[in-house]
Design a protein around this nucleic acid. Structure first.
Lengths: 226, 226
DNA sequence: GCAAAAGTGTTGTGTATACACCCATGT
DNA sequence: ACATGGGTGTATACACAACACTTTTGC
């Protein structure tokens, strides 16, 4: 039964980061053929003793230095000629990280690893353009009805910072008062009582994500809407 | 590079059908070990010269006789011990069909193939219980904001029939007047002018899905809500 | 004429959106 | 004192949910 020819199976990761200015995406410059010296998503072969998600985390750790992030399966890409080396399936994941929390460490198999503004991506190898497009669409959809995105900020953040992040993801302006109202009503964020000082204006309140409350609300089947 | 050990890759299909009474699901009784004589989702190994979706269609055609249905990738299951024969990944798809349009033909590798009421499923082999749960959740989510489900009815249907189908999928009652209003306002269905005769009551109007209009509306970015 | 299901509108309630000014802080 | 961005409330439109009776057909 298991004597069927087997495709190779890889994992590719679309890692979104946010530096406070724009949404960006982590790409890796390949040192080896195929697509030598081109930019591609961090990825690697699935090992036999790990699940796809474990594999995605290992790949990210060893090839980019990132660990411990939010991670979700995106789609499995299986085009017959998507890899010039042969039949290779790719289980794609997407991840959200705060770049400031990690040091980028290019693995030995890469010339380098770098953040790119989501609106200024270089040409990419394999079918990774399609993978990236799918990941952006998924992130946009997800963020409007589930409170993801806190992973991209520091632990404590101001409402303006959170709003600006959402505007970067959704690529549209959001009304300040409506945004604040909905965020606070949802109870998934909590004021800390602290203020961010040192700005050249009104010192803004710092908030944090209330994960316990979020999980409790999920069980009650609550709806979140941007 | 491609000398890494490779997992086997299979395709599993969660096929939803609807007989006018209840939502049902197609299972296949295995003739071979493992899980001999148990019910499982129709599935099979991915061939090297086909994409995963092509594979899903081939598997359904050869193992159950079904063809030409709505099909969508669900999730890739990759638990390490999910198959006793070794490391086997499964790319799961889900499909919607009208059982009356097809004759069930059990492939040679099965004792039989049969529709089961979604609320009276037998014990299933592999991790297929989990796969089925994921497919039901996905179908429920999808149906509330996209007009899928017409695939489960005959070409021409009454609004009551459509409503009852939605009630089966969503497992809740829907207000008749609100349902009719929204369906008709959405423009994705169109009255045919014909009526279904022979019932022992008021002869109801027959409608059909307006696929052209649906695709046109999609481009405009319309929102559909049950 | 009786049983059975089809068909039909309105109203209240809640939710989303649009919009402008004052306030606290740093320089 | 001035520049900068933080913070706040309301009015309107729209969407959703609740609700009951009349009409058509078959028997």
């Amino acid at each position: 039964m298991l004597n069927f020819p087997r495709p190779s199976v890889t994992i590719d990761c679309v890692v979104f980061g946010y530096d406070g200015q724009s949404l960006s995406l982590l790409l890796l410059n390949r040192k080896e053929e195929p697509f030598k010296d081109m930019w591609t998503l961090p990825g690697g072969f699935l090992f036999m003793e790990e699940t796809p998600e474990e594999s995605a985390r290992r790949v990210l750790k060893t090839k980019t230095g990132l660990a411990g992030m939010y991670l979700e399966q995106l789609f499995t890409f299986g085009g017959i000629n998507r890899d010039p080396r042969g039949r290779v399936l790719s289980i794609a994941y997407y991840a959200l990280v705060d770049p400031k929390k990690f040091e980028l460490i290019a693995g030995t198999a890469a010339n380098g690893v770098q953040w790119f503004d989501i609106n200024k991506l270089p040409k990419t190898g394999f079918d990774h353009k399609e993978v990236i497009r799918a990941a952006i669409a998924r992130l946009k959809g997800k963020v409007t009805y589930q409170p993801v995105g806190f992973e991209l900020l520091e632990k404590k953040f101001t409402l303006t910072e959170l709003q600006f992040l959402y505007e970067c993801i959704l690529q549209r302006n959001i009304d300040k008062r409506n945004f604040r109202k909905r965020m606070l009503e949802s109870k998934v964020i909590r004021a800390t009582g602290e203020k961010r000082m040192g700005l050249k204006n009104h010192a803004p309140e710092l908030y944090e994500f209330d994960e316990g409350e979020y999980k409790r609300l999920l069980k009650e089947g609550f709806q979140f809407r941007i």
